[in-house]
Amino acid sequence: MALVKAGVVVLDCAEPEKLAVFYKELLAAEETDATANRVEIRGADGFRLAFRRDVNATPPSWPRPENSLQAHIDFVVEDLDAVERKVVELGGRPLDTKDVAGPFEERGYADPAGHSFTVRTVTPTAPKQG
């Protein structure tokens, strides 16, 4: 019997309500729980994501080294161009990540609060280089 029954990725941000809207739209998710300081959503595939209020949240600066990558989320998608249009429409922005070597195509973005995430057409199998 597993000791842990479920998990959720939690992103700290200054405005959890606004960040939840971004990810709800991007993932076609539904809100499952909300309090004054935390909003949780669940995608159709069961992926859970929550946003916790931190008035002193400092966005990561990845790929720049100062205040670099704290954590990021990988999403597997079918159409990179369609996802990019949706990300930008919702207030996200592409990150300049140079050319990523490997057997898969991927693109990096920042959500409206600055958290980085990657969309890719294939799940990576090789270890991260560098």
Rank of each mutant, 00 (worst) to 15 (best):
L3D: 06
L3S: 14
V4H: 05
K5T: 07
K5P: 01
A6H: 09
V9P: 15
A14I: 06
E15L: 08
E15S: 10
P16K: 06
K18D: 03
K18H: 11
K18R: 13
V21W: 14
V21N: 12
L26V: 03
L27P: 13
T35N: 04
T35R: 09
N37K: 05
V39C: 01
G43A: 15
G46V: 03
F47A: 12
F47S: 08
F47N: 11
R53I: 03
N56S: 14
A57G: 08
T58K: 15
P59V: 03
W62P: 09
E66Y: 09
N67M: 02
N67K: 11
N67E: 04
S68L: 06
L69W: 08
A71R: 10
H72I: 06
F75P: 09
V76W: 15
V77F: 02
E78P: 10
D79A: 01
D79H: 07
L80V: 02
D81M: 13
D81S: 10
D81F: 13
E84A: 03
K86V: 06
K86L: 11
V87M: 03
V88M: 02
E89Q: 07
E89F: 06
L90C: 04
L90Q: 01
G91L: 03
L95H: 06
D96A: 00
K98T: 07
K98R: 10
K98I: 02
V100L: 09
A101F: 11
G102P: 00
F104T: 07
E105T: 10
E106V: 15
G108A: 08
Y109T: 02
A110Y: 00
P112V: 00
H115W: 11
V119S: 06
R120N: 11
T121H: 05
V122K: 13
V122E: 12
V122H: 14
T123V: 15
T123S: 14
A126L: 14
P127R: 01
K128Q: 09
K128S: 15
